[in-house]
Amino acid sequence: MEHKALWALKFLNFDPHETQSKRRSKLLEVEEMRLRAYDSSRSYKEKLKPKWSGPFVIKHVYPNGAVELENPNDDGQQQSWVVNSQRLKHYLGGEVKQFSMVMMFVDP
């Protein structure tokens, strides 16, 4: 058995020092890739942070579950955008202006 193992090592030109250095270089490459992936995921998370927060007025609700939000700016301009309704949360802080609508029904 030893003879066959020795023959296989010679046939494959096995050098333990060369194999060890190759393994070290591969481990360093893997560690470098892991660090790059960590850095890129961190920067990607920064890009994904929501750029809007606060109470908004719902302008329109679409049948597919999307909601158009409206944010009146201080300079009087109306800013609106469409988001998935599942991404919305109830606003639980501070005073919010309450809007109400009164409808008068008349008999025809």
Rank of each mutant, 00 (worst) to 15 (best):
M1Y: 08
H3F: 03
K4F: 10
A5Q: 14
A5I: 13
A5G: 06
W7G: 02
A8Y: 03
K10V: 06
K10D: 13
F11V: 09
L12E: 13
L12T: 13
L12A: 07
F14N: 00
P16A: 04
E18G: 08
T19F: 14
T19C: 12
T19S: 14
Q20H: 10
Q20P: 00
S21F: 05
R23Q: 04
K26M: 04
L27E: 15
L28Q: 13
E29L: 06
V30F: 03
V30Q: 07
E31D: 01
E32A: 07
E32Q: 03
R34I: 15
L35Y: 12
R36V: 02
A37L: 15
D39T: 14
D39H: 07
S43W: 09
S43G: 05
S43C: 09
K45H: 13
K45G: 12
E46R: 08
E46V: 11
L48R: 12
L48F: 03
P50H: 07
W52K: 08
S53D: 09
G54V: 10
P55W: 02
K59M: 03
H60N: 14
Y62I: 00
N64H: 15
N64T: 15
N64F: 08
A66F: 11
A66Q: 15
E68N: 01
L69T: 06
D74K: 10
D75S: 04
Q77D: 13
Q77G: 01
Q78F: 15
Q78L: 15
Q79T: 10
S80P: 00
S80I: 01
N84D: 15
S85V: 07
R87E: 13
R87G: 04
L88V: 01
L88S: 10
L88C: 10
L92K: 10
G93C: 02
G94S: 12
G94K: 08
E95W: 11
E95Q: 07
E95D: 09
V96W: 02
K97M: 08
F99K: 00
F99Q: 04
S100V: 05
M101A: 09
V102H: 01
D107H: 02
D107P: 01
P108R: 04
